[in-house]
Design a binder for these strands. Structure first.
Lengths: 335, 335
DNA sequence: AGGCGCTATGACAGCGCTGTCAACACCCCG
DNA sequence: CGGGGTGTTGACAGCGCTGTCATAGCGCCT
């Protein structure tokens, strides 16, 4: 009536629970025929090991934990979706936790998952180098995604933030824009700072100078960014093009554009958006390719779970500029 | 060095492990002073109970499982995000699993989570009544969300699908449209059928007849729906307005509109979208209010975990028409 | 004084696994 | 033919909790 246990399988197969355990875990030194007989009993009884017991007995939970800013951010939603799919393929479950960009909450969440005994953790951390290093546990495999945050003793998968930003701004400059605004943030974590650095580089490359009046580096959420975007577009010498350094800032600039009926301003956003192709004009973006990033993160985590002493990797995945239209706009002719 | 256990707390506080256990679980019949002393020891040692051990000892895991079609669907992403937030508030974790709209995978995922010993499950099921009933476990509290699927022995939280559809179509009819198309599906689960029923009702109410040439009821994904949407808009007597019965179908119709430069066609979509306000024109939607739905689901689940014999509830939450523009378009004057 | 019914606490046996260590074949070698 | 592997299996003690049942102390009744 109740779920079968390892004892039931042992009885059914005629071997001891230890041998059954060996079969379950694919341990070496079990005769082929024994494996087959035990497996037959497992199938017959529809036995599935109890993860809690496995954990308590000395193993890890067949589970990976994912800690991200927020689960309904399209970027992270995709990351979680991919990891969940991959985890399912290998019989693991996925625990999700969000930080809401609150540092103490990030700590709590990470600790909770680590304590729970997950086999591995995928974390998008933030905050200053030292505190991030403190927050990441050493006793469980961790892969850091999206931002390095100065982490050197863990595997990292991130994208070419600086190069992506360069490409975006270069794209605008190549179309004749000479007043290119920046909307983003330059603290919290390196990812964002790198994008600003890319912006500066591309400007320099085009022989342009940074004009602080069209650079906004303090906003984080779409709601925070919106008034700044409005202000930037409303000034006398408004930019003819804007580089939004995150999808949130992308929403902010698009809303501001719409509000002011200034769809003529060229825009490139760092980070793709599911409906970007439906905008008017369709939005040109630097795609972070969350799917590829998540796949790589999962692979790296599997690798580290298997071999805790593997060399620490810092993977930097290329971004991809998707020119859809909003970046093609020429600077509007001045009166 | 190693994590403190209940024995450490017992030793530190001078009570037995059982009393510590009582304090942890807020059991009755423990003296106030005892609670305080034990709590002090817990705080001092930074003790946290091991969920796996709690589970094995006879309890449930402090975890809720969420099973949805796909985690990166904006609707479900929001649902997961809300549940995760609420769970965190009460010290629970969240396991996510996706079905990919595959029935056997749905079964597998549900069973896996149930086996894992979660305290409760939130499931968006699909498929025919009998098989859904079979797939949902009885030994763990389950709350069904978004679709009833004929479930009668579990709590359900869903929205007013039929009424929402009626409202959407009525909105279009009120603006003079007499050829209103339908894009959606009428099988898989009641939710979708109900929306079609609402469509029919609203048409009848407006004295209009269903024209099968502008009704498409077989598409599910955006990719499947797109060619159908194209075909519908391209015919000689194309509709002047379309009701898309799901966000996916919404994307399909919007893409088709864009492709054919037919932004003049009025559109109402069932289900809101994060960037709907940025479309041209901004998209009018029937908001399913995923946040409210998820809150209700979590409340219902907590209630059932506490009292497994509580009365079974079928909550139907009201939808909300958000008139943004695309539904306001008048029928284009015929040549 | 004896008995009853509380409340507060503890001893102890599992829960279903895995790790450790031992046992028992066999085999090869000298 | 004995010593020392190697391959295969099992006995058993935990892992860190919770459930059950026992125990002790106390107030109150008869």
């Amino acid at each position: 009536m109740t779920r079968p246990t390892i004892y039931d399988v042992a009885r059914e197969s005629g071997f001891s629970i230890k041998t059954v355990s060996r079969v379950i875990n694919g341990a070496p030194n079990v005769r082929r025929e024994t494996v087959a007989r035990v497996q037959a009993a497992i199938d017959l009884l529809q036995y599935h090991p109890d993860p809690a017991a496995q954990r308590l007995g000395g193993g890890k939970l067949p589970t990976v934990g994912v800690v991200v800013d927020s689960i309904d951010d399209p970027f992270f939603a995709q990351v979680v979706a991919v990891i969940e799919g991959r985890a399912m393929d290998v019989g693991m479950d996925v625990l999700v936790a969000s930080t809401g960009m609150d540092e103490s909450r990030m700590r709590t969440q990470i600790q909770r998952l680590a304590r729970r005994g997950v086999a591995g953790l995928v974390v998008a951390p933030f905050g200053d180098e030292r505190r991030v290093a403190e927050a990441l546990p050493d006793e469980v495999p961790v892969v850091v995604i999206d931002r390095k945050c100065g982490v050197t003793d863990k595997d990292v998968v991130r994208v070419t933030d600086e190069e992506g930003a360069v490409e975006a701004v270069r794209h605008l400059a190549a179309r004749g824009h000479r007043r290119i605004g920046f909307l983003g943030k330059t603290s919290a974590f390196t990812t964002l700072t790198d994008r600003y650095v890319g912006y500066e580089k591309a400007l320099a490359e085009a022989g342009l100078e940074v004009d602080p009046r069209i650079v906004e580096t303090r906003a984080w959420s779409a709601d925070e960014g919106y008034p700044h975007a409005l202000a930037m577009l409303a000034t006398a010498d408004a930019p003819t093009a804007v580089f939004a350094a995150s999808p949130m800032m992308g929403l902010a600039i698009l809303r501001a554009q719409q509000r002011l009926h200034r769809q003529d301003i060229a825009v490139v956003i760092f980070g793709d958006h599911p409906a970007a192709d439906l905008m008017t004009p369709p939005t040109t973006v630097v795609d972070q390719r969350p799917t590829a990033l998540a796949e790589a993160a999962f692979d790296l985590l599997s690798r580290r779970i298997q071999d805790p002493d593997a060399e620490v990797l810092d993977m930097v995945m290329p971004t991809m500029l998707l020119a859809r239209g909003s970046g093609e706009l020429a600077p509007r002719s001045l009166p």
